[in-house]
Simulated assay, not measured.
Amino acid sequence: MEKIAFLGLGSMGRPMARRLLAAGHELTVWNRTAAKADLLAQDGAKVALTPAEAVRDADVVITMLADPEAGHAVVDAMAPALRPGTHLIDMSSIGPRAFAEVAAKLPAGVTAIDAPVLGSVDRAATGQLVLFVGGDPGPVQAILDQFGRVTRCGGPGAGSALKIVVITSVIVGVTAVAEAVKLADTYGLPEDLVRAALANSPVGGVTARAFAEGVHYPIRLAAKDVALAMASTELPLADAVHAQLTRLADSEQDLGKVVEQLRRVAV
């Protein structure tokens, strides 16, 4: 069993790390907020005080970080301690440009693949995520399989690119459902009737996501992902959605809560 270092223990990282512990891997964890790492110690993980300490003896390093800035900071901190032959799996949603920049900082002999995920905390806990993988997953396939279904996307960075494509469509779709519900309010239509009609329409999938329970994809991260998409090309709809998301009151709520929040926003 490979020695694995897992860096980034947010709402997604913690259940993913627990799956590796349950599979019997020797796991070292690090998180900027140390208390979150301590929760994994109770399950058998070794807690490192710095990214460099976490990766020093690792065969495989997994990063699950919030944004490109965090990705750069963590790689800068851990790169001097990486050994030749180590495999880095970047599972963060940072986009193809940032992934390429991060990979370029790695020392010789360290290989990197991008494997951002689609799914929330419920699927992370049960190993049912969708992994968009750029590069060759072969050497770490058994580890990736612990998290869910692997979709091979092409060369390095292709997984990060496809994740941004898919998640942008989901975010725009959920926001459209939120505005549809607000429109229904102005007509005085019963909510149950509206939700059922939307669920049985061509937008049924994003309607299910808009009203899903037990999931947590903060609105602030959705805004970040849309911003990554907008940085690549002109996207008028995404631009409008980004403006909506950034003016909402509680950006720590799940993306689905845009339905409630937009219903309260005055025209």
Rank of each mutant, 00 (worst) to 15 (best):
Q141F: 07
T175M: 12
P84Y: 06
R149S: 09
G44V: 11
V170W: 05
L129E: 10
G44C: 08
L20T: 04
M1W: 01
E213K: 08
H72M: 11
P236N: 00
Q253M: 14
L27K: 03
R152G: 10
V110C: 10
V174H: 00
D145P: 01
L248N: 00
I167N: 15
L88N: 09
F99Y: 11
A70R: 09
L183V: 02
P84D: 07
S120P: 06
D114E: 06
A197T: 10
L245R: 03
H87L: 12
A184S: 12
D122R: 14
G155T: 13
T33F: 03
G134A: 04
A197C: 08
E260M: 10
E179K: 04
T28E: 13
L39N: 01
E26C: 08
G127W: 08
V172A: 13
M12R: 10
A66C: 02
L39T: 15
A210Y: 03
A161I: 09
Y217Q: 09
L39K: 09
L131M: 06
A45N: 01
L193I: 10
R195W: 10
V258Y: 06
G119I: 11
A104G: 13
M12I: 13
S120K: 01
A176Q: 00
L88T: 08
D254T: 09
G13T: 13
M1Y: 01
G134Y: 03
A249R: 15
R56L: 15
A54K: 04
L193H: 12
P15W: 14
V55Y: 10
V206H: 05
A34K: 15
S120N: 09
V60F: 05
L129S: 06
T86I: 07
R18Y: 01
Q253K: 15
V265I: 12
V181T: 02
A98G: 07
V121W: 00
P116W: 03
D250C: 08
T186F: 02
R263T: 10
L198R: 04
G157C: 01
R264D: 00
G138L: 13
E213C: 01
F147H: 00
L49H: 14
A77G: 03
K163Q: 04
A104M: 07
K224A: 02
S251Y: 07
G214Y: 11
A125T: 09
A73I: 04
L88I: 14
S169N: 11
G135H: 08
G44E: 09
A54Y: 04
V226M: 03
V61P: 07
V258Q: 04
A266R: 12
G256T: 14
R209L: 15
L106Y: 06
P156H: 02
F147G: 03
T168L: 10
T28S: 14
G173H: 08
G134S: 07
A37D: 13
A5H: 09
T126M: 12
H25T: 12
N31C: 14
L245S: 11
A48M: 11
A212G: 02
K36H: 12
D254S: 04
V47I: 14
A73P: 00
G10K: 00
D225T: 05
V102T: 05
D114H: 02
V165K: 00
V75D: 06
L49R: 14
A37I: 14
V215F: 12
P190A: 15
G188N: 07
R32E: 08
V215W: 07
A196C: 05
Y187A: 14
K163G: 03
I219S: 01
P80E: 12
K105P: 01
